[in-house]
Structure formats: structure tokens, C-alpha cells
């Protein structure tokens, strides 16, 4: 019964986000999801996409040259993890270069870009912000856990980029606006 209520709440929230945050589903399928900053939040977004039944491929280190137009939407899971960067064998500087090249290629291919920041306040700071800014400038839509926007950075960047920003209270609530963004 509890799960049924939660599913109903999920569906209701999905509808609410569809109208309040992003009035129409705009993102084409399939998606390509990558980690900008190599945090484990990437794994959480894969679960969200699975549960929303959005077809996708996932590559935390995908490079611009791999974008060939087969994926129609780029999902960027943004947030730096020094541990994750270390484990992936990539420096923060090289990760930024990869990100900028990805964004440039995505623009050329006219891909939709969805920025997801779901790590909250713990996934902010100088290194994360370095990745957040270029991603938000290029984004079509952003979904953030509200505690990551306590200083208003995402709100400000979304306003500058003239994109919709969905703020959710926790990561499990990010599934509704993400699912609603896909046609």
C-alpha cells in the first residue's frame, strides 16, 4: 500500500513538474549520460533513467568525437569528486577540457542537454563550480537537488541561460522531472 501511495505521488509529481517546470517534453530519445566531474551520482542517474524507461547509453568519460548524433539528448551528471577523478585517471583540468569539447560538439549536433546536479551541498565547491558553469551555459534544462542551490548559483545561471530549472528536495524526486523532459 505504501509503495502504491508512493507511486501515485510519483505520478502526480511527474505531472506537476511537467507543467510547472518544463511545460512540454522536449528531449528526444535515446540519451547519452556522462559524468562531469566523475562523481558516483552518475550511477544514481542511471537508475533514474532505467526506472523512467528512457533508453540510454552511459559512458562516464565519453569524448566529443564519440558523439555522432545517434544519441539525441546529452544528460550531464555534474559534480566533482576528487576520488572519482583519481580513480578514473583524469585530472580536473583534463575533465574540463573534455567537458568543453563535449558541449561544443553537442551544440553542433543540436542535441538537447539536461544538466543534473543531485549531490546537494556536498557536491559544490570550487572544483564542482568549475564544471557547473559551462554546463549550465549550454544546457536546455537543469534539475538540481535544492540543497545544492542554497547560494542561488543554479538559479542565477539558469536565468542567464534562459532555461527552466527544476529544484527537487532529494535525489529520488529528480526522477519525475527527468522522465517528464523526454518525449
Amino acid at each position: 500500500m505504501k509503495r502504491f501511495i508512493l507511486v501515485c505521488a510519483f505520478v502526480a509529481a511527474l505531472g506537476a513538474y511537467g507543467f510547472a517546470q518544463q511545460s512540454t517534453a522536449f528531449a528526444e530519445k535515446p540519451a547519452l549520460v556522462t559524468a562531469i566531474g566523475q562523481s558516483a551520482d552518475f550511477e544514481m542517474i542511471k537508475v533514474l533513467l532505467n526506472r523512467a524507461k528512457v533508453p540510454y547509453t552511459a559512458d562516464p568519460l565519453v569524448k566529443a568525437e564519440k558523439l555522432d548524433g545517434s544519441a539525441k539528448t546529452l544528460v550531464l551528471v555534474v559534480g566533482a569528486s576528487s576520488k572519482g577523478l583519481g580513480a578514473a585517471g583524469i585530472s580536473a583540468e583534463a575533465e574540463l577540457v573534455r567537458t568543453q569539447a563535449l558541449l561544443k560538439k553537442a551544440k553542433e549536433l543540436k542535441l538537447s542537454i539536461i544538466v543534473m546536479h543531485v549531490g546537494g551541498a556536498a557536491r559544490r565547491g570550487a572544483m564542482s563550480d568549475t564544471f557547473i558553469k559551462p554546463c549550465m551555459e549550454a544546457a536546455s534544462y537543469a534539475i538540481v537537488v535544492a540543497s545544492g542551490d542554497e547560494d542561488g548559483l543554479f538559479t542565477e545561471l539558469a536565468a542567464k541561460a534562459k532555461i527552466s530549472l527544476a529544484k527537487v528536495d532529494r535525489i529520488s524526486s529528480a526522477g519525475a522531472p527527468l522522465a517528464a523532459a523526454f518525449k
Binding site: 558516483a40 550511477e43 544514481m44 542511471k46 537508475v47 533514474l48 535525489i171 529520488s172
Partner: peptide, 9 residues
């Protein structure tokens, strides 16, 4: 890690 991510949701 995918098992963990699903469980955390």
C-alpha cells in the same frame, strides 16, 4: 555499484 544505487533510491 548499480545494485547500491538502486537500493539507495
Amino acid at each position: 555499484i548499480e545494485t547500491a544505487a538502486g537500493a539507495l533510491f
